[in-house]
Nucleic acid binder design. Structure first.
Lengths: 214, 214
DNA sequence: ATAAGTTTTTGCACTAAATGCAAATTTATA
DNA sequence: TATAAATTTGCATTTAGTGCAAAAACTTAT
């Protein structure tokens, strides 16, 4: 059952497990969008996906986690895009490029908008959505750190940078969803980044002024 | 039932309600610390606090919220400390002073350490703990915004600043809990702030370099 | 003080999430 | 084909959380 290069091919067992997981996820999302999150019971999901109710919990620890798993896509794209860049590229460019790539990948999913609305209108999912940002911040820090010298003073700097970026993402998301948008996403993002770097430059001045004034 | 200055005095009803709430909260925390969060049922709490099980939900929407309510103390202290400062004080000083005040208030609670450990060791509470940071970030942004000119470009800048500060708080918390600390909190915090302002100053340079290089 | 109105508390029934466990089924391996 | 390992299922159980209506406590005006 080993491949030519020694890797283990996906056997029937793995394949079925993956398929079942996907079936549960897509079925659940479809039902959530159709009837709402709270009004969809786990039994509804398992019945529609043709597995036992008990099996649901072999794949997802809770109903919310189905949506969270879907949301993790963005973070995955992001860290991949960070890792894909030349090691000598400037930090700021790396981030802007990576975020743009992740955004493109995310909005290419046709379900994206509907799920965003579902989350916005479902308290239990909104709470979970906040966690997504926290996780994203951690992962981005991690990805940036993997590229860097590994010096220990670096850590805080990268965390702060990641926090600033994620903060911009959050605000950008609100603005994007809030007002109706005439701009294409690329331009909108570009504008947000412009604001972000300006804000950081500005804060840098404040910080330096404070440090030297003593 | 009106006070001399027109304010309404706390009647028996309000007082009892407040007392009941406090009784539930302190009882719950005591039980959580004694038996653990998961092993304490809501019925355990209500029985010990001598109210009906149903009444618990008149005061807290869920078990987790009891701990969250306790945690909100820090945010409350923080925004009060921000608001208490002279309007012309430099932004960076306002933040450093306010955080220090809030930290002092928090660690003066003798339960603080035990609850921090409880949260760290309880998955359901850890998730909630992340939300605390998100909420803190929002509130800090809000408090800073209330002091500022109100210009609209300001918003992102203050959000980014708040995000940076909260990021430092998170890392500071980890470092503080992780390694055993010889330093007193004040000095530790001062060191963290020093790192934070240095990091911001640094990132400011990167941002400016990026913006001008086009 | 009492009556009338309002808020709070309680009891009860009920839904649904989540977990534990052991039996049954399916897949992999020798 | 036998045996071992992983997966799925069914069943029982606990507990969180909600809805609703009756009872109790409190407030206010007469």
């Amino acid at each position: 059952m080993a491949d030519i290069d020694g890797a283990v091919r996906e056997g029937r067992r793995e394949r079925k497990r993956r398929q079942t997981r996907e079936r549960i996820e897509t079925t659940a999302l479809k039902l959530f969008l159709a009837r709402g999150f709270d009004s969809t019971t786990i039994e509804d999901i398992t019945e529609a996906a043709d597995v036992s109710k008990r099996s649901f919990f072999d794949y997802f620890p809770s109903k919310e986690d189905v949506v969270a798993a879907w949301q993790d896509g963005f973070a995955g794209e992001l860290i991949a895009a960070v890792a894909a860049q030349p090691v000598d590229a400037p930090l700021v460019d790396v981030i802007e490029t990576a975020i743009n790539a992740a955004l493109r990948a995310t909005i290419s999913d046709p379900q994206h908008l509907a799920i965003a609305i579902l989350i916005r209108d479902t308290p239990a999912l909104r709470a979970r959505d906040q966690l997504k940002y926290a996780k994203l911040e951690r992962k981005l820090t991690e990805a940036l750190h993997a590229r860097s010298s590994g010096a220990e003073g670096e850590r805080l700097r990268l965390s702060v940078l990641a926090a600033a970026v994620v903060s911009m993402l959050r605000i950008g998301g609100e603005r994007w969803n809030g007002a109706q948008n005439d701009l294409p996403l690329e331009e909108f993002a570009s504008g947000m980044f412009h604001e972000l770097w300006a804000a950081l430059a500005d804060l840098g001045v404040l910080a330096r002024r404070h440090t030297s004034a003593r």
